[in-house]
Simulated assay, not measured.
Amino acid sequence: MTTPSTEPQTTESPADSATPWGKLIGIVLALSAVICLMLLAFLTPSYNSGAKDLPIAVAGPEAAVSQITSALDEKQPGAFDTTTYASPEDARNAVLDRDEVGGIAVDTDGVTIYTAAGAGQSYKTLLTNLGSGLEDQGMTVTYDEVAPTTEDDPNASGLSVLALPLAFGGMISAALLSLTMKKRYSLRVIGSLSFSVIAGFLVGAILQFGFGTFDANYGELSLILALGIGGTSMFVLGLESLIGYAGLGLGAVLTLFVSNPLSGIATGWQWLPSPWGMIGQYLPIGAAGNAARSVGFFDGAGATHSVVTLIVWVLIGLGFVGLATLKDREAASPAAS
């Protein structure tokens, strides 16, 4: 007589046995897609960037201005969006106020070209080449650099790499605080804001005193950088507090694949294809880069919009943390009763 076995019999379905392989295939395909998206996110703006509808100030007698604008359209169709100003001084002030990336003024002495290397080296090079063309036509051309870069870093190379500490500083701080301070929302906020301020002053010191990229108000510059790091850090931290680890992934996508390539830090946002350059200015990295240019080379002109944008991102992150706190309290209330 055979005694039936009392041990439970487990059968492994084909779906169960295939699960590890399915997950592996899914991970490999997802990572491959991420690499492709990353490449496209950086290459697409780069390949489509250039001189298109660049805001340029022009001033002078009506006939001369008309001749200059016609020559610009003929030489590079669609490259410039010219605005006529009443006087050369007004045109120069428009460049200083960051309303325009450069200017051209015509008077009895010849042509004056206003360049602003602090707005982006590409614009200065473009205007200098235009001036050379006018000189070849026999005109007297004078150059007026209204927002120069420093002698130690004439190409503002330090500013060009600023996106890296802004992006990774914000992301790394948010990720570490989320993983180590689970549900301790107040400590997360304190940690994020403290790190952002310290990092902002350290990065500012390296750029200004270490490499000479800026010769500006160190405190203002550092606070701008702190806001740039804090905007990303607080937002991603808030996302993770509200929706869990998916928030870290969403924050990484927004930071690395959207905010970073659309920031225009290296060239100035006007060099990016429209409307992406403008969109990038509503994101933390782009806003921080533009504000750093304003403080570093233009005595703060044109920084207001960027500073407000950064503060809004910090407040959104704080709002998400507040919502997560209320959500946890509501979930805990029935259990306590």
Score class of each variant (00 low, 15 high):
residue 321 V to Q: 13
residue 16 D to F: 14
residue 328 D to I: 05
residue 155 N to L: 15
residue 242 L to H: 08
residue 80 F to I: 05
residue 283 L to Q: 01
residue 35 I to Y: 12
residue 17 S to C: 10
residue 99 D to K: 14
residue 60 G to T: 01
residue 156 A to F: 03
residue 207 L to C: 05
residue 292 A to D: 05
residue 284 P to C: 04
residue 306 S to D: 06
residue 210 G to F: 00
residue 252 A to Q: 04
residue 154 P to Y: 04
residue 104 I to M: 01
residue 298 F to T: 00
residue 121 Q to D: 14
residue 107 D to M: 06
residue 237 L to K: 04
residue 211 F to T: 11
residue 234 M to T: 11
residue 145 E to Q: 09
residue 254 L to N: 09
residue 192 S to F: 09
residue 51 A to K: 10
residue 333 S to H: 13
residue 293 R to E: 02
residue 228 G to K: 01
residue 132 S to D: 14
residue 152 D to N: 15
residue 50 G to Q: 00
residue 96 L to K: 15
residue 129 N to V: 13
residue 307 V to C: 05
residue 65 V to L: 04
residue 222 S to R: 00
residue 173 S to Q: 10
residue 195 F to E: 00
residue 218 Y to K: 11
residue 251 G to R: 00
residue 155 N to D: 14
residue 266 A to H: 05
residue 333 S to P: 08
residue 181 M to G: 12
residue 308 V to H: 07
residue 227 L to K: 07
residue 136 D to V: 11
residue 134 L to H: 00
residue 312 V to S: 02
residue 239 L to P: 07
residue 281 Q to K: 01
residue 169 G to Y: 00
residue 142 T to F: 06
residue 214 F to M: 03
residue 8 P to C: 08
residue 258 V to T: 08
residue 239 L to Y: 07
residue 250 L to G: 11
residue 185 Y to V: 09
residue 144 D to P: 06
residue 120 G to F: 00
residue 326 L to N: 14
residue 182 K to V: 11
residue 190 I to R: 12
residue 30 A to F: 09
residue 98 R to T: 03
residue 244 G to M: 04
residue 30 A to C: 11
residue 196 S to F: 01
residue 60 G to M: 05
residue 253 V to M: 15
residue 123 Y to I: 04
residue 186 S to H: 14
residue 114 Y to T: 01
residue 46 S to H: 13
residue 128 T to S: 14
residue 169 G to T: 06
residue 326 L to R: 15
residue 1 M to V: 15
residue 6 T to C: 01
residue 292 A to T: 07
residue 104 I to H: 03
residue 186 S to I: 14
residue 24 L to M: 13
residue 335 A to R: 10
residue 264 G to P: 03
residue 41 A to W: 04
residue 189 V to Y: 08
residue 36 C to V: 15
residue 258 V to W: 12
residue 82 T to H: 02
residue 156 A to Y: 04
residue 36 C to S: 15
residue 260 N to K: 11
residue 332 A to G: 13
residue 52 K to C: 09
residue 191 G to S: 09
residue 121 Q to H: 08
residue 271 W to M: 13
residue 317 G to S: 03
residue 276 W to D: 03
residue 304 T to S: 15
residue 174 A to W: 01
residue 311 I to R: 03
residue 243 I to F: 09
residue 137 Q to W: 08
residue 178 S to L: 10
residue 30 A to K: 06
residue 121 Q to W: 01
residue 5 S to N: 14
residue 179 L to R: 12
residue 146 V to F: 07
residue 277 G to F: 06
residue 185 Y to C: 09
residue 214 F to S: 02
residue 165 P to V: 07
residue 258 V to D: 11
residue 20 P to S: 06
residue 336 A to V: 14
residue 164 L to D: 08
residue 249 G to C: 02
residue 29 L to H: 02
residue 142 T to C: 12
residue 59 A to R: 01
residue 309 T to W: 11
residue 236 V to L: 07
residue 70 S to K: 12
residue 273 P to A: 06
residue 246 A to G: 15
residue 301 A to G: 00
